[in-house]
């Protein structure tokens, strides 16, 4: 074959090859798609079943994912949006960009959760994490914490999803009394950081006794670093939950493939990747159970969660209240 014909053959074959392997684009947050996150293993597992490629497009965190989707609108190249939490889902639903789920997979969440549009893939309880070699009697409630001399690090609810989670936590636990709780906590707060990692980094440097994170954070130190010195404190008021969800875009050209991906995400294969990559609880506990080490974590008896509608309604006022009280 002459080179020219060879080239021609490639040109005509290339689009066919591309048509044969569709690319499923998943818009998610950075740490999900990172090499050490759950993204690569889940993509690889799904690709073995689907004759397709998975491509991740990333934004900084859940809130950045949503704002990127809002910028892109119906023209988004994504098929799946993965990584919003329940304080963002109403805003996401209101965009009208999501298609309903074809099937709702069963889940093991500690609270009843059912959503026609968004499928939960993991969850966690917010909690204050401390060093158990330095703090032997951790506070048992926000009130005990406020009455103590303990210093805490928190995140800003205007730029960080855990920061917003804490504001919702106080709101869900104390309702109209939340302003007073913030007032009492003010002298315990060392500082407010723009993001989770800044607060956590400061905590590991010894800048405070406790940091707002998740009940699962000690599992990272225990399993990945063989370091048993971090614990999370149980609060009597109960612990606010973060449920992370994925949804399918109505504009996706790969509707069936997107449904398949969501089904795979709920399967044991994908769910068993979550605990030691995202350091959260899987939405459905896999048949093999949770990894060794997770049994050491605290299990709050009371879970708090505002419905996504209530969260959306109270978010603005709660953040403004937080800002007003702490700005004094």
């Amino acid at each position: 074959m002459k080179p020219f014909h060879l080239a021609l053959a490639f040109v005509s074959l290339a689009p066919m090859a591309m048509a044969e392997t569709p690319v499923l684009t998943v818009l998610t947050y950075d740490s999900f798609a990172a090499d050490w996150g759950p993204g690569p293993a889940i993509a690889k597992g799904f690709e073995e079943t689907c004759a397709c490629k998975v491509a991740y497009v990333t934004a900084g965190d859940g809130a950045a994912v949503l704002s990127r989707l809002q910028m892109e609108g119906a023209g988004s190249a994504a098929d799946i949006v993965l990584g919003l939490d329940t304080s963002l889902t109403e805003t996401a639903r209101a965009t009208g960009l999501f298609a309903p789920l074809v099937a709702q997979a069963p889940n093991d969440l500690p609270v009843p959760f059912s959503d026609a549009t968004f499928e939960p893939f993991d969850w966690g309880w917010f909690a204050f994490v401390y060093d158990n070699t330095k703090l032997t009697m951790p506070p048992k409630s926000f009130q005990e914490l406020a009455a103590s001399d303990l210093k805490i690090l928190i995140q800003d609810p205007r730029s960080s999803t855990p920061g917003l989670g804490l504001v919702m936590w106080v709101k869900a636990a104390y309702g109209d009394q939340s302003a007073q709780v913030w007032q009492d906590l003010a002298d315990n707060i060392v500082t407010v950081t723009p993001s989770w990692d800044a607060a956590y980094g400061l905590f590991l440097k010894g800048e405070a006794d406790m940091v707002l994170s998740y009940t699962t954070s000690p599992a990272y130190h225990l399993i990945a670093e063989k370091d048993p010195t971090k614990s999370a404190a149980t609060f009597d008021e109960g612990h606010y939950m973060q449920i992370e969800v994925a949804g399918k875009l109505a504009s996706s050209k790969h509707q069936a493939l997107a449904d398949q991906f969501l089904a795979y995400l709920a399967s044991d294969a994908a769910q068993s990747v979550i605990p030691t990559t995202n350091w959260m609880y899987p939405a459905k506990t896999p048949a093999t159970g949770l990894p060794v080490g997770f049994e050491t974590l605290i299990k709050p008896e009371k879970s708090l969660l505002l419905s996504s509608v209530d969260a959306e309604e109270s978010r603005k006022a709660a953040v403004e209240e937080w800002q007003t009280v702490l700005s004094k």
């Binding site: 800003d156 003010a186 707060i189 500082t191 407010v192 950081t193 800044a198």
Partner: peptide, 12 residues
Amino acid sequence: FVVALTLGGGPA
């Protein structure tokens, strides 16, 4: 903003 917020000590 990162410096201001982190070292500023709060939303003030």
